[in-house]
Each structure stands twice: as structure tokens, then as C-alpha cells.
Design a protein around this nucleic acid. Structure first.
Lengths: 208, 208
DNA sequence: TGTACATCAGTGAACGCGCGTTCACTGATGTAC
DNA sequence: TGTACATCAGTGAACGCGCGTTCACTGATGTAC
């Protein structure tokens, strides 16, 4: 009996330490592209030695993937809120545009998450254990987006319109996030402008 | 007199050899992502030793950039043709959609060009000598696209609409080129479907 | 026309560096008797 | 309660590998006299 409790406690402790490392990674994710983050950086940020990390994660890839998933999952919550807010206030805002802006905002302010997302989308041959996890995440996101679209009055039985909208938003982000010669603040402004333009075009262009 | 001619000939020969290496890179670009192409691969493909490459290009980065520019410039010609064709046949095709499809087609069938384009767009801090060249290329492309848009009857004094359209197309490409679980042939079909949908939405959504 | 020297393309092997990962070890905490 | 042993977190240093790049050298072609 008592031993199981102790075991549980130790398990919790282990999870807590694991989180500590993940938090360190997420902190670095905010300011650096993921491919410039080394195990030594993470170790320093978390206050442990590089070797210690390997007690909790089998490889850098797995660690990054876990951090990425944790980070990106938080976007889903933002959707949820947007969705509920709009439904309660009986549409004072345009859910399509709000959703686009929510995605954009998050990915503009998290350097590595943005880069990793892009990287995973672009990269062809990926180890399948990573691919599977990314795919699951992507599907979940798309489902959420479809929810919002349906709610916004856009019926889309075969998901084509949803795909078009999502990828347009992603495209704006990827094309102009680091558009040369623009400061990041201007880029953000420009991107928001484009996203709301696209939202408007979609709304109008999809009317019967 | 004669010596200048000889000098010229030698210069030509040098250029020819340089092209040989560039061609080798482009050949590899078709089948592999650029970050999996090493100097040894290029050397093997071109039939020279790795060290020989450095007689013509100062670094791998410069070599890749030059190959990339050469490759991507060929898209511009496709635009030109699309543009002229449409103008001669007095609009049997939709130039907006055709242009989108031309971009998509080229980038689907050139693995490394696609990846490098995406990479350059996404990557933040890039050596400025590379950035400058990419920027020039990007501007030139955007100008061409604006030409087509203007021709298609979309007036766009501040380039916003052009930006929105281009990035939407790029977004579809980036999002679904390697969409997990889809074979590349299906992906291509799906992408073309999305691009023409977007072209339609834009056309309709932009009518006054 | 022949000889000595300069120039340049090209080579195979080696250098060097970054960086993920592993190794041998320490010290603390838990367990058995 | 004390002692011998097991377990596990954590460490600093070293390993090892890939890969861009450089080095010392060879052989061919051009130039001067």
C-alpha cells in the first residue's frame, strides 16, 4: 500500500522534472529557431547537464516533438474560446477572421514553433514515428477549424474549403513572417491585413 | 588581339565548366531536398572531385543559391507564355488560375527548389549576401504576378491583393505538398483542386 | 625549335568543427537483515 | 539502530560521425627567350 503511494510520488516527481526540461525548451522556442537550439543550450536553460536530459527523453527529436505538440495544442484552446465567445455574444465578431488572427498571432510570437511547424509541413521524408504524431496533431487542428467554419455558416462536407482557408492563412504567415526588409512589427501588421482580406474574400466568394 | 580572343575562349570554357556543375546540382535538385545534397554528391554527379567545385564557387551556399536562382527564373518564362497565350487567344483560359497552376506544377516536380524556396521564406536570420539575392528574385516574381493580375482585370495599386493571392497559393503548396498519408500524385491533384478553388473564390470575392 | 619557367585545372587525403550522444563515475536515497 | 547492498538521478569529459573545406601535390598547357 504505502509503497505504491511512494512509487506514485516518485513518478510524479519524475514527471515534474520532465516538465521542467520541456518548459526550458519552450522558453528557448520563443526566441530561437529550433534548429539553432542545442542540447547544451537546453541543459543550461533547465539548469542540468546535457546528459541528464537523456534520462527523460530518448533523443533530441522526441524532445522537440513533445515540446512542439505541447506548444501547439495551446492554439486549440484559443479556438475554443473564440468559438464560445462568438456564440455567446451572438456574432459581434467574425469567427473566420478571428480564428485566422489567433493562429497568426501565436505563430508570429513563437519563433521556433512557427519554424518547426513549417519545417514539418515542408519536409518530405520524416521518420515515421515523428510523422504519425504530427499528422495526428494536424488532423485535430483541421477538425477544430472546420468546427469554426461550420459555425460561421460555411458548409463544407468534403473539407476542401477548410483546406483552402487554412493553407491560405499559413501561406500568408510563411510568406511574410520573415519577409526581407520588413521589421517584425510591420510584418505582423501586414500579415493581419492580409488575413482579414482573405477572410473577407472567402466570405464573399463563397456566397451562393 | 589574338591573346584577347584566347582569353575570351578560356573564359567561355570556364563558364561552360561552371554550368556543368550547376547542371549537376539542378539534376540533384529534382530528386532530393537540398539539405541532403552534399558536396561529394554534386562532385560525383558532375564527374569531378569535391575540391574542384571550389574553383568555381566559393562555398556550398553560393552554389546552391545560384542553382536555385537559375531554376526559379525559369518559372518567370512560364508566366510570360501564359500571359501571351491568354492575350492572343483573347482569354480562353483564366490567367489567374493558370498562373497558380504553373507555379504549383513547377514546385511540385522539383523537390529541392520547393524546399529551398520554403526554407528561404521561413528562415529568419540569413547571411545578408544570400538574403539580398533572394529578395531581388522574390520582388521580380511578385512583379510578374502583379502583371498577370492586372491583366486579369484585378486592379491592385497597393499590391495587397497580389500578396494575398501569391501567399495563398504558396500556402496550399506548402501545406499539402507533403501532406502525410497522401501519395505525391494525389497530393498534386488535391493541390490543383485547391488552387483553382482559391482562384475562383478570389475572382468572385473581389467583384465590386 | 628547344628549354626553363609560370599558370592553372584538378585530385585524394586529411583537417577541423559542431553537436548529439554515451561513458565511467559520484553521491544520495531506499531496502533488507 | 547499524551495516551492506541496490537503485537511481545527475555529472564532466570524451566519443564519433558527417560534412564543408583546405592542403600539398600532379600533370597539362601556355609563355619567354
Amino acid at each position: 500500500m504505502a509503497s505504491t503511494i511512494l512509487k506514485q510520488l516518485r513518478e510524479d516527481e519524475r514527471e515534474a522534472r520532465k516538465s521542467l526540461i520541456l518548459e526550458a525548451v519552450l522558453k528557448l522556442f520563443e526566441k530561437k529557431p529550433f534548429d539553432e537550439i542545442g542540447m547544451r543550450d537546453i541543459a543550461a536553460e533547465a539548469g542540468v547537464s546535457p546528459a541528464a536530459i537523456y534520462r527523460y527523453f530518448p533523443s533530441q527529436d522526441e524532445l522537440f516533438m513533445e515540446a512542439f505538440i505541447k506548444d501547439l495544442s495551446s492554439i486549440k484552446n484559443v479556438f475554443q474560446e473564440t468559438f464560445k465567445e462568438a456564440s455567446q455574444k451572438s456574432l459581434p465578431v467574425d469567427p473566420l477572421e478571428e480564428m485566422g488572427k489567433a493562429i497568426v498571432h501565436h505563430l508570429i510570437h513563437n519563433e521556433a514553433t512557427f519554424q518547426m511547424m513549417s519545417y514539418l509541413m515542408i519536409k518530405g521524408n520524416m521518420p515515421s514515428y515523428l510523422l504519425a504524431r504530427f499528422q495526428a496533431l494536424q488532423s485535430a487542428l483541421i477538425d477544430k477549424i472546420i468546427e469554426v467554419l461550420t459555425f460561421a455558416g460555411i458548409s463544407d462536407p468534403d473539407r476542401t474549403i477548410s483546406h483552402a482557408f487554412i493553407s491560405s492563412v499559413m501561406g500568408v504567415l510563411m510568406t511574410f513572417r520573415n519577409y526581407p526588409g520588413k521589421e517584425i512589427i510591420n510584418a505582423e501588421e501586414h500579415i493581419h491585413l492580409l488575413v482579414s482580406l482573405i477572410a473577407k474574400i472567402f466570405k464573399k466568394g463563397l456566397q451562393p
